[in-house]
Design a protein around this nucleic acid. Sequence first.
DNA 1: AAGTAAGATAGGTTTTTCCTATCCATTTAC
DNA 2: GTAAATGGATAGGAAAAACCTATCTTACTT
Lengths: 307, 307
Amino acid sequence: MSAITLRQLRYFSVLSKSLQYRNAARQLGISQPSLSLQINALEEALGTRLAERRRSGLILTPEGREVAAQAEKILQDVEKLQQIGGPSEDELAGTLRLGSSPTIGPYLLPRVLRQLHRAYPELKLVIRDGTPRDMIEDLLAGKHDLVLTQLPIARDDISHTFLFREPLHLAVPREHPLAGRDYVRKADLSGESLLSLNASYMLSRQVSDLCAASGARLRDDFEGTSLDALRQMVSLGMGMTLLPALYAGSEVKPGEGDVAITQMKPGLYRQAGLAWRRSSGTPASFLKLADFIRDVAAREFAGKVHL
Amino acid sequence: MSAITLRQLRYFSVLSKSLQYRNAARQLGISQPSLSLQINALEEALGTRLAERRRSGLILTPEGREVAAQAEKILQDVEKLQQIGGPSEDELAGTLRLGSSPTIGPYLLPRVLRQLHRAYPELKLVIRDGTPRDMIEDLLAGKHDLVLTQLPIARDDISHTFLFREPLHLAVPREHPLAGRDYVRKADLSGESLLSLNASYMLSRQVSDLCAASGARLRDDFEGTSLDALRQMVSLGMGMTLLPALYAGSEVKPGEGDVAITQMKPGLYRQAGLAWRRSSGTPASFLKLADFIRDVAAREFAGKVHL
DNA sequence: AAGTAAGATAGGTTTTTCCTATCCATTTAC
DNA sequence: GTAAATGGATAGGAAAAACCTATCTTACTT
């Protein structure tokens, strides 16, 4: 006993409408015997007679009617299948799984997602947080399609595109002498204590670089596990740190609280980017999503970030 | 560009779960190259890459995940297809189209249908009325699967099964001398006027036969188009007629109204049966339905009809 | 750096699908 | 009532699809 094939269903669907072999065969562009054989095979596969053959037109059996209806549904679903790859050329659709760094995502994504949903209601994003280090791993393991994280990424199995450059500001305790300054130079940090996130985050590297360049001391006895934790450690007077502009803009009110934000001069920056497996190729949808994020960033955070 | 096949979907479904070609191929009982080819064909047919091939397991692309989900649905629907013929061996299910004679259906079917629905909730009946003559025609044209009508049917393209024998009673105007009698013999009808349905109904034949045998006069100037019309003509004193026991039992109250019902002696009967196209074969479901109707008739109309 | 493992490719065989020709039964025409 | 026409079934052989074994290529291991 052979299995059902879509070909059989396609043929039967046409036959069930035309109710005539020769006619249906002509519509299908095949010969009448071929159609006969396929319908016979379908009947055998199902173990049921589907139609009474009579010279004056076919009559579907009750089972035949059911099979015709079900076949119609199946063929329609197959039709849908064929369109899965298609329209996504100029529309974002389907489900993308996006990994997001906790130092970027929470301050950028809320606005992006709202506008994204309005612009592409067919697109679904599954978002999961993780440290940049874990996320790259999960990306390669296939748990994410894309990762929103800090650049640079120097791996030849990862492709990426640049999104924007984000200034890093200095956060100092309010009572600290540097708190009132319009801007701070590296040299001003000599001898100060700097706090940092743990080494899974790229930001920690930038803080330690800054220490090396300025003569500040890296407080490696306490490692923040989030930007919020870092800010709170600063407010307790444990030291100063670098905070990304988007975070500072959304979570630290100027002139309020125990933490003051000051510019660095010359500026320090970090780069945000969108990364994916090289083996994914470079799907148009990824680039389109990146474009969209850049757009939103330029519009919503003008002045805060640089393209 | 070749069309999608179910084989491709079946293979891809397994592959999308196993995420390994060799493993999936073993599960499917085919070689790894065969699987490769089929998956490649599916990708080509869809115009999309479905998975990233890597030594350490596959990763489905976003499109691949959608295709896998949709394929699953399709395969499940195909599974349902295969069961359409199956269980109906000992269960009535699906949709049957039943033609029903207006002289039998309305008085028999209400009770049958109620119990049928309780016993076989999966069964749907589409019921349409028509004169027996039209119904046989419609049956042959494929508009009905089955017809509930009066026997005999002497055609070699129609099969049938006997359901029950139903007495025919004499309906006379209340003021007529025969109205009070316990029973009436044929001879008593000599010279009387008999009313009949039009010739599309088999009952009309029985009335005219009775006229011939008894010496009664057939009033062919007025033909009833329904049993109700016939009863009303009797009540107006236009003549007498034969009414089936089920109709008489449900529509004519003894001792009430202008029509009296009396038994014939010896009894007159008609036969009810279920008929279908010979080319339908003899599906178990038809016989099962006939059994059910007989059962209900015996139980609900005991004494009124005879098996 | 060599070995291993997993998917891709090649060549040939088997199975499926299809076509033409023909058959047979029913319906239609004369 | 017989002959022609119509429409589905059957047969045989050709074309296409699917499959298998053997081999290749490359990424991951050891």
